[in-house]
Design a protein around this nucleic acid. Sequence first.
DNA 1: CGTCAATTTATGGTATGACCATTAATAATT
DNA 2: AATTATTAATGGTCATACCATAAATTGACG
Lengths: 251, 251
Amino acid sequence: MKTVLKPIKPKRVSDQVFEQLRELIYRGELKPGDQVMPERELSLALGVSRTTVRNAINKLVVLGLLEHQQGQGTFVRSPEARDRHPLALALETEGATLEDLLEVRMGLECNAAALAARRATEDDIEVLQQSLEKMETAFRHKGNNIEPVVDASFHMAIAHATKNPVHIHLMKHFHDFLFIGIKENLRLLYEDPRNIDAVVEQHRSIFQAIARRDPDMAASAMRLHIRFVMLFFRDHHSKAFLEKVRAPVAV
Amino acid sequence: MKTVLKPIKPKRVSDQVFEQLRELIYRGELKPGDQVMPERELSLALGVSRTTVRNAINKLVVLGLLEHQQGQGTFVRSPEARDRHPLALALETEGATLEDLLEVRMGLECNAAALAARRATEDDIEVLQQSLEKMETAFRHKGNNIEPVVDASFHMAIAHATKNPVHIHLMKHFHDFLFIGIKENLRLLYEDPRNIDAVVEQHRSIFQAIARRDPDMAASAMRLHIRFVMLFFRDHHSKAFLEKVRAPVAV
DNA sequence: CGTCAATTTATGGTATGACCATTAATAATT
DNA sequence: AATTATTAATGGTCATACCATAAATTGACG
C-alpha cells in the first residue's frame, strides 16, 4: 500500500511573515491607507529579526500591496493605485469583462460553498457569521457606505471553510483580479440601499445553508447571489450605454 | 516660464543595483539559466553592503526574473518558466493532495463545459473532436501507452471554447500543477486499458453534449468524468473501484 | 502674537559581521 | 564500488549600529 507521506513545510520565516501580513490585508483588517506597524515593532511582536520583517514587507511592496514612505511609515495601497498588477494587466489585454470574472467565480464558488457546507468547523461558521453581521451593521449605520472588502472577506471565509488548500491558494493568489478589479463597480452596486439589502439577504442564505450543512442549498444560494451581481452589471451597463446614446452632446 | 525640470534621481542604492542587474538580464548578458554572482561577491564588486544587494535581488526574484536556490546560488529564470513555478511550489508546502486539485477542477470545469456548450464555434467542436479521436486511435494502436498530454489538451480545448479569457488564463496557469504535477499518477490510471476505455467514453459524452449545445448535460458529463478520476485515486489499490463508480452518484 | 527656522522624533534605508540552513561536491569508510 | 561523513559554497536569519528623510515640536525672533 502506498503510504501517504507527511506534507512537510520547510517554509522560510520571511514567507510566513509575508503570508500573515497579506492575510491581514485581504481580510480587511488592514484597509487601504492604513499604516502598518513599524518594522521595529513588528519584529518585536513576531519575535523575528527586523531583516526578516523587511524582506516580507518588501515583497508586498513589489507586489503592489504596500507602499513605503521613508521617515513616515509603510501604508496599504489603495486598489485603484495598483492596477498595474501583472495579472490584472494581462486580463485587460485579453479583453476580459466583469461578466467573464463572475462566470468563473460562478463555477469556483458554488463548488466551494458546497464543500464548505460539508466541512466547515464551528470556528469557520463563527467567522462567517461575524463577517455577515459586520456587513449588516455597516449597512444599518452607514447606509450606502459599504466597503467592498467586507464582501470579499465573506467569500474568503468560505474559501477557508472548504479545507481545500488548492482552492484557498487560488482565491488568495488570484484575489486581485477576482475581486479588486471589480471593486469600483461594486461601489456602483452598493450605491443603492436596495441592492445592499438584497446582497446581505443572499449572503445570509449562503451562510444558513452552510451552517445547516446543506451542500446543495449552499451551492444554489451562491449561484443566486452571483447571478444577481451579474444581472445588475449587465443591466447597469446597458443603461449607461443608453444614456450615452441619448446625450451625445456636450457635458 | 516653466522649465522642464530633470526627473531628479534620489535613488535608493538598492534600486540602483536593481537597475543594473535588470539591465544585464534584458541586454542578454545574463541569459536564462545563468548563475548570477554570489551576493558576497556582488557586494564587494559594487562597493555596497550585502544587505543592499539582497534587497535588489529579492526584488528581481519577486518579479520573476531571478530564482533563488539556497546552497546553490541565484539563477536567471527563463521567460517561459516565469509564470509557472510559484503556484506549484507553494502548493506542495501546503500539503495539497490530488483530491484537492480535482475538487477545484470539478467546480471550474463543469462550469466551463456548460459555457462551452453554449458558445463553442464549429472550429472549437472540430478541435474537440480531433482531440477525442487522437485519444481513441492512440488507445487502439498503442494500447496502454497514452500520453497524459492528450488528456490535458482535451480539457484545454474546452477552456478555449468557453470564450472566457479569465477561465482560459486560469487554466493556463493551472495546467502545470494540474496535469504535469500528476503525470506519474495519470500513468497509473492509464495502465489499465479498462480505465482508458472508460475515460475515452467519458470524454465522448462531454464532447457530444457540447456538440449538441446541451449545457446541463455537458456539466453533468464532466462531473462524472472528474468523479471517476477522483475515485480512482482515492482507492486505486482497490480492485473494485469500477463498481463503485458505476453506482449512482449524487453530486 | 504669529512666523519661520532649528531641533527632536519616528521611521525606513544601509552597513557590518556573525551564524544558521541547505545543497552539491568531495573525502573517508566499508 | 557503494555508501556514508565531511566540507565548502551560498542563500537565509539575526543583532546592532548608524544614515536619510519627513513630520511634529520647540524656540528664537520680529
